[in-house]
Simulated assay, not measured.
Amino acid sequence: MSPAVGNKIHVRVLLAANVVASVEILPRVRPPLARMFTGKEPSAVLNVMPRLFALCAAAQQTALVSAIETARDEVTALATQQHRIALIVIERIVDLARGLFVGHLTLNVASAAAIRSLMSELSAFGRSAQTARGYPQREVTGRIVAALATLGVWEGGGFRPSSPLALCAAALNEDGLMSNPTAHPFLSAADDPDITKRLLRDDPTFCYCPDLEGHVPETGPWARQMTRDPLSPKPFGAVERLTARIVEIIRLCAWLAAGARVDTAEHGIIGTYKLGPGRAAAAVECARGRLYHAVELDAQGRISRFEFLAPTEWNFHRRGPLVRNLKGAALTAQRRRDAVHAVIASLDPCVGFTLDFREFHDA
């Protein structure tokens, strides 16, 4: 979800006798969108949005246009709402599936042909959805679900024994890096009022280092699953996030195949909030989690202030989900890089990352 500029997240794990003593995160350099957009006509900004964002372009565009419309007190037609939600859902399916195959099945030679075919289908799906509302969603989503079945996914989202995805999940479990989810908060649409009120306050650091009353919740597929259908507390980690990703792909494909109706859409997939005269915010549930845009318009209708808050700022916060997942975990010397890398990848940062280890006595 980042503009196509070079930036990375740097993660350093400090070890004491192969136990994670602490985790240091140097966050990415956020793109200077507030400075770029200030003084611009909204139409000019909206026209460049697809070129600015290499990932989640539909979600970014929808968040901004929804915030602008709300600031102008405009009413969005039902057909437009349906089209926007469908675009976001299609983009989520594409991004979740790409991350699944690229991140977990890249080296699986036996599944290479199936993965290449599906990736080609996903690419065409995403491109066509941007230009034509009549794309055959039922046909394409059926092929996506069938491809997942070939790779080992049962209809309900579990893994067929000895299938490529089952073996992948088993390998993640073997890494042995799990944490207790007790008091682990998850971001949801219910948090929007608190967050949107803070986006345009004078202190801009909230968008760089957000929190909710001191807590830093997780956002993304696992958070959506836990919010929708809370599970009993148990250890969790990369394999649970992998499963949540697959379950969500299947669920979203079913929604598209059933007609993509607004009244059956996911709760809070797009939220809009009026913050005062000429001021508004919007939230969009995209692949990596909940995205926020906020705008203030001047008397001439130009953008006088813009702020955005991406899922990565929550998941890779210095006190966020990654740190909670890693701190206190015991790692074997042979597999420690793979184990930590898997946890980072399961949170799916919107930019690249580096990872290094230091022994505590060297820190």
Rank of each mutant, 00 (worst) to 15 (best):
G157Q: 11
I246E: 01
A189Q: 03
C286E: 13
L14Q: 03
G276I: 02
P27M: 07
R116Y: 13
A282Y: 08
L105C: 11
R198Q: 10
L52E: 05
S188C: 11
G214F: 11
R279N: 02
L118Y: 00
K8F: 10
G142S: 05
R251W: 01
V262A: 11
H215D: 15
I195Q: 07
E24F: 03
T272I: 08
A97P: 01
A282D: 13
K234S: 14
W222I: 04
A190Y: 05
G259Q: 07
L355T: 08
S120P: 00
A97K: 01
L151V: 07
P136E: 09
H293A: 03
G39V: 09
I269W: 00
A339P: 01
R133G: 15
L46D: 00
R241C: 00
P235F: 01
P32E: 10
L87A: 09
A77M: 07
A299G: 13
L231Y: 00
R358E: 12
A124N: 08
L172A: 10
D73G: 13
L297P: 06
K8L: 10
V153Y: 01
M226I: 08
R261V: 01
A282L: 08
R28T: 07
G157Y: 02
G134F: 02
A363I: 13
F206V: 06
L15H: 01
K40C: 14
T243H: 13
Y292C: 08
A57M: 08
D192F: 05
R98I: 03
S179M: 14
A260K: 07
A299V: 15
E313F: 03
R28Y: 15
E266C: 03
V153S: 05
L100N: 00
R336C: 14
E240S: 09
I344E: 01
A44D: 15
P50D: 03
L26A: 12
V216Q: 05
L148P: 04
A287T: 13
P210L: 14
T38R: 12
C56H: 01
N173D: 15
R261E: 05
F357Q: 00
N325V: 03
I25N: 05
A223I: 11
L187N: 03
A260C: 11
T332K: 09
A258M: 02
H267V: 10
F186C: 06
E121H: 10
T205A: 09
G39C: 09
Q137V: 12
A260S: 13
A260Q: 07
D211G: 06
Q334E: 13
L172W: 12
L326R: 06
A310N: 05
A44V: 11
N180M: 04
W154F: 14
D263H: 04
L200T: 06
I246L: 09
E91G: 05
A280E: 06
A254W: 00
H341P: 00
